[in-house]
Amino acid sequence: MNEQSKRAEARRRGAWIAARVASVGGIALAAAGIAMSAHAEPTDRAAAEARTRATHDDSAPLPLEALTIRSAKGCGCSPCWGPPAPPEPSSAEALA
């Protein structure tokens, strides 16, 4: 397996674990521990492989990359880990 394929396979498993945690069934999966990550098979392999071809080629453009590069001033620093400041209330809401 080449480097790109290994990374794509690792991403597929990582995405699958996150999806299961976020789903109702994820509660059972998480309780069963991480060992499942190495053995359980995603149910929609064909769809995952299609996404792999579309987005995991190291020379292909990345999703949302253009929007982000154009307008983001990413910090990626730890103080930003946590909820952002809430939206300012509109003037009508503030007066209510």
Binding site: K6, R7, E9, A10, R11, R13, G14, A15, I17, A18, V21, A22, I34, S37, A38, W81, G82
Partner: peptide, 17 residues
């Protein structure tokens, strides 16, 4: 739902590698 779920996906991927 956001930060920790993304962390799960990232760490699980890293763990595979």
């Amino acid at each position: 739902c956001c930060s920790e779920t993304v962390a799960v996906a990232l760490v699980a991927t890293e763990r595979e590698l």
